[in-house]
Design a protein around this nucleic acid. Structure first.
Length: 435
RNA sequence: GGAAGGGUGACCGAGUGGUUGAUGGUACCGGUCUUGAAAACCGGCGUAGCUAAAACUACCGCGAGUUCGAAUCUCGCCCCUUCCGCCA
């Protein structure tokens, strides 16, 4: 949620970037509701002052009741009740409208009105050349006995899979590799140096296994509940299956005031994520590119405001580093206003080359949220000077395991349907060079 | 799932209807003392709304109710602890 003060002071700018982000926002209606809300709240405050004074007088008169004061007090109570109801209603409208306002785009976000206007910022590595026709991951993995979608369909339905054998070992190897990398101060320092980042702490990430379910209230505060059709609701409970570890990690410190010395908080979550994939009917049906359930390593961070952009850049650098360690060809997209998402101030995607499709496909995303999420979560920091501020949040994919294995299988395949294990993973797979 | 107890400020912990926004302690910040530090002593120290500011208002897990007046009483919900049951 955005600060209402910003909307009050910059209504035209809010209208402008809301349109650029494709968000429908009733700024004028919001400002009217805001004014009404403040007016009623002011009246309510005066009535409460009066009530408190009367209560005070009654208290001071010892023993004897004061009928006229009691009567006045009762009358005030009724008036207050009426105004409270009124304020609740206005507040409901106000919050609903304010929630529609998206985050302010960071200054370097390109303005665009469709995902085609995302900007390719960088292309790293070269697509591999094959002296045979490369297979797609699904053909290859199925013939090797690594994937069984038919039985998964029988048991759970479409967009589920049994992943088996060496592919499971590969996933575990990637997970261990990433955990080892991101929990090492030396590695973080190396990443900072390689990507020439300035004034960034080399604090390592803390690995986290989070809950996979999240309360409605928290999901909404994260601004990730909508569109609900894409979420899985747990029947008979105010709970949902999380769609990303971001949802359960980002809400972890809700309502708390952190000490500045605890920041930055950097977490590496490992969790299964669940998505209904509403509106993607028929898309990516082959293989495991788009599933209802997939495992993901996700970075989540909390920092003070002036460091949050640096944290965002670090998260992006980590993404690049990990892809480069796996020697996968990829490109970096700087997303335009339309595509970054409502709570984002900035967004970057990584796309990895998939030889069988002959194109780059999205595997990573990095979200720079500033204080948009923390405002509703009420996650704050007490600065060393004693001031309390909202923290800034960042999240970014380390690896979506399904998609990254698709990329490895396709890019590292051999003519005889084997897959060369990326060098950095071999130590985690008993030293084998090929599976 | 059943039973009992409990949720108060960064932390511990008083407080059972009226100068309690909340005793006290710890931590933290400033000062005195000291060569320096520690100790001791003095002072400061919740969040948010509306404000130029003061005043005022709200907040003692969340929500509703009783009352002139609620951290304190009633009801519902959430969470935690312990015991029992079940279980990877």
């Amino acid at each position: 949620m955005l600060d209402i003060k910003y909307v009050r002071d910059n209504p035209e700018r809010v209208k402008e970037f809301s349109a650029q982000k494709g968000c429908e926002v009733d700024v004028d209606g919001l400002l009217v509701a805001d004014a009404e809300r403040r007016e009623v709240a002011g009246k309510l405050d005066s009535l409460r002052t009066e009530r408190n004074k009367i209560a005070d007088k009654v208290k001071q008169i010892k023993g004897k009741p004061a009928p006229e004061l009691i009567k006045k007090g009762k009358q005030l109570k009724d008036e207050i009740a009426v105004l409270e109801t009124e304020l609740n209603e206005i507040d409901g409208v106000f919050i609903k409208l304010l929630k529609q306002v998206p985050n302010i785009p960071h200054e370097d976000v390109p303005v665009g009105f469709s995902e085609d206007e995302n900007v390719v910022a960088e292309v790293v590595g070269k697509p591999p050349k094959f002296d045979f026709a490369p297979k797609n991951h699904y053909e290859l993995a199925s013939s090797r006995g690594w994937l069984d979608k038919e039985r998964a369909a029988k048991v759970a339905g479409a967009r589920f899979a049994y992943i088996k054998g060496d592919m499971v070992k590969l996933q575990m190897a990637i997970v261990q590799f990433v955990i080892d990398t991101l929990t090492s101060r030396a590695k973080i320092a190396e990443i900072i140096k390689r990507f020439k980042l300035k004034n960034i702490s080399d604090k390592p990430f803390v690995p986290v296994l989070p809950p996979l379910m999240i309360k409605t209230e928290m999901y909404d505060a994260m601004d990730r509940l909508e569109p609900r059709e894409d979420r899985y609701k747990i029947e008979d409970a105010e709970l949902w299956l999380q769609g990303s570890a971001e949802h359960v990690l980002g809400s972890m410190y809700a309502g708390e005031i952190l000490e500045e010395k605890e920041l930055p908080v950097r977490m590496l979550g490992y969790a299964s994520s669940f998505r209904q994939e509403a509106g993607t009917y028929g898309k990516d049906m082959e293989g495991i590119i788009r599933m209802h359930q997939f495992d993901k390593l996700e970075m989540e961070g909390f920092s003070v405001g002036e460091n949050s952009f640096g944290e965002h850049l670090l998260f992006v650098a980590v993404q690049k580093f990990l892809l480069e360690e796996l020697k996968l060809p990829y490109r970096v997209l700087q997303k335009c206003t339309y595509d970054i998402g409502k709570p984002n101030a900035r967004g970057v995607d990584m796309e990895v080359w998939l030889p069988a499709q002959g194109k780059y496909r999205e595997t990573h995303t990095a979200d720079y949220m500033t204080d948009y999420q923390s405002r509703r979560l009420k996650t704050r920091v007490k600065r060393t000077d004693g001031k309390v501020e909202l923290v800034h949040t960042n999240d970014a994919t380390a690896f979506a395991l399904g998609r990254i294995m698709v990329a490895i299988i396709e890019n590292y395949q051999t003519k005889d349907e084997k897959v060369v294990v990326p060098e950095v993973l071999r130590a985690y797979m008993g030293g084998v060079e090929e599976v």
